[in-house]
Design a protein around this nucleic acid. Structure first.
Length: 449
DNA sequence: TCGTTCACGC
DNA sequence: GACGTACGTGAACGAA
């Protein structure tokens, strides 16, 4: 770690102390629920296994491997499916192209009934392992996940035992199973505050791109605009799914350094996976045909144009900033963060370009947590910070203190912080989620202040 | 022990 | 014109 300013050193020092307080505080665990749920999942895993063993794919598998048959071996699975049963691999894991991939995505495109059960088995097992991990790290009803600032090259944070930063969220069933076990202390509420689009805001601040700044200041919807361009739609014809695909399969990947070819693939597949339609209900591929895009190749060509305009017209200042940054790194061998750190590592281009955005975005959260902890102590509050996930913080809140606490977050996290760091030239936004009294992380609901 | 693959988060 | 998500943890397998 190379802090180059007093402020940067202070941030790491106070940050480490604050994060260790979160660890010491710990989060309450419903251990009875964990044990019951573990048993339930074990039963389900057994019956899924029974179901699998009856399929013809598994009979073949057992015949081939005999004694060494192992249902958890993906190597064996790939061998059976692709070498013995004649299925065609969809994608390959390594550079040589030798090992056919058997991950979720590859399996789902195979259209064999057995894989549905197998995917379900994997998910159920991973949910159970997560609960087991939580129980293993729980002492007297509290889990104390570690948060580190000293191991990462990215200037973000890291978490372990349990890793608090990758609890299930996207898969609804697993989200419920896992987050239901993380609770508020008796008589309290679990609350979460999230910075909204923090990385985009930091990107605007570091690059000074006027279009990016305008989107934020005037609360424009860049994902909507890109959906219109990608799918050739009028504003009022952009459906939720279309906007969602534009956001997660084009805009974000592009900002992380991806390019139109992979984006095209993901967008094209997304149309099928998410049944993307226009708002009035026309299937997207049909709509694209009407617009003259009749094949994958034509769609790719179209996306090449979209990407070109994205970087060379819409966000050309940001694009130029990135090119300058890369040239500077090649010349001097380091890249500086606005928060006062200097990165000397050997970096690939995308690593170099992302570091000045990801690190400072997290530093905003870190600064806020430090100040919040100070505020809590000064006011002699009993509310406790208990966790942190890159751009969000989790607290165990005393209901009487809730209002003051949330207002303090807005004050510190969006206003005071801009007094402290003048490089923050756009407004910041914080969203809240709150559980009922005695609720769990799963019960959290959006909360308007 | 260690590299690879898988799966999860931002 | 070529190049091309970033950052993490952890479990399991299987080769060394």
């Amino acid at each position: 770690m190379k802090p180059t300013t007093r402020d940067a050193y202070w941030l790491m020092h106070q940050g480490a102390l604050a994060l260790n307080e979160l660890t010491a505080n710990g989060i309450a665990i419903d251990t009875g629920y964990c044990r019951r749920q573990e048993d339930k999942l074990s039963d389900e895993i057994s019956s899924l296994k029974q179901k699998l063993l009856k399929t013809k794919e598994f009979k073949t598998w057992k015949n081939i491997y005999g004694q060494s048959f192992n249902i958890k071996s993906n190597k064996q699975l790939g061998d059976v499916l692709f070498n013995h049963m004649g299925h065609t691999p969809i994608k390959f894991s390594d550079d040589e192209g030798k090992n056919p991939s058997v991950d979720k995505e590859a399996l789902e495109t195979l259209d064999i009934p057995m894989v549905k059960v197998l995917v379900r088995l994997r998910k159920t097992r991973s949910a159970r392992e997560r609960l087991r991990g939580i129980m293993r790290e729980t002492v007297d009803g509290f889990m104390h996940p570690f948060f580190g600032l000293h191991l990462m090259v990215s200037y973000r944070s890291q978490s372990s035992r349990m890793n608090f930063q990758n609890m299930d969220k996207r898969d609804k069933r697993k989200k419920k199973i896992v987050r239901r076990s993380l609770c508020a202390r008796p008589g309290r509420q679990l609350g979460e505050f999230d910075y909204g689009q923090q990385e985009v805001r930091v990107a605007a601040c570091t690059s000074h791109d006027p279009v990016l700044i305008d989107y934020i200041v005037n609360e424009g919807d860049m994902h909507l605009d890109m959906a219109m361009e990608i799918y050739l739609l009028d504003e009022d014809e952009v459906s939720y799914e279309a906007r969602d695909c534009a956001k997660n399969r084009f805009v974000f990947p592009e900002f992380y350094g991806d390019w139109y070819k992979t984006c095209t693939k993901n967008l094209w597949e997304g149309i099928g996976e998410m049944s993307v339609c226009t708002k009035s209900g026309t299937p997207m591929k049909e709509h694209l045909r009407d617009q003259g895009i009749k094949s994958y190749k034509q769609f790719e060509k179209h996306l090449q144009g979209v990407e070109d305009r994205f970087w060379h017209e819409r966000f050309k200042v940001f694009d130029a900033w990135r090119e300058d940054l890369w040239r500077s790194y090649l010349k001097w061998g380091y890249v500086d963060l606005v928060t006062g750190f200097r990165c000397y590592e050997t970096m690939k281009k995308n690593e170099c370009l992302n570091r000045p955005i990801q690190g400072p975005a997290f530093h905003c959260l870190l600064w806020t947590i430090i100040q919040l902890n100070k505020h809590i102590k000064k006011q002699k509050m009993d509310t406790l910070m208990v966790g942190q996930i890159h751009d969000s913080g989790i607290a165990d809140i005393v209901p009487d203190e809730c209002d003051d606490f949330l207002h303090s977050i807005v004050q510190i996290g969006t206003l005071d912080i801009r007094e402290h760091w003048d490089w923050l030239i756009v407004p910041l936004e914080v969203d809240f989620g709150l559980s009922p009294i005695d609720g769990s992380w799963y019960d959290k609901e959006d909360y308007e202040l």
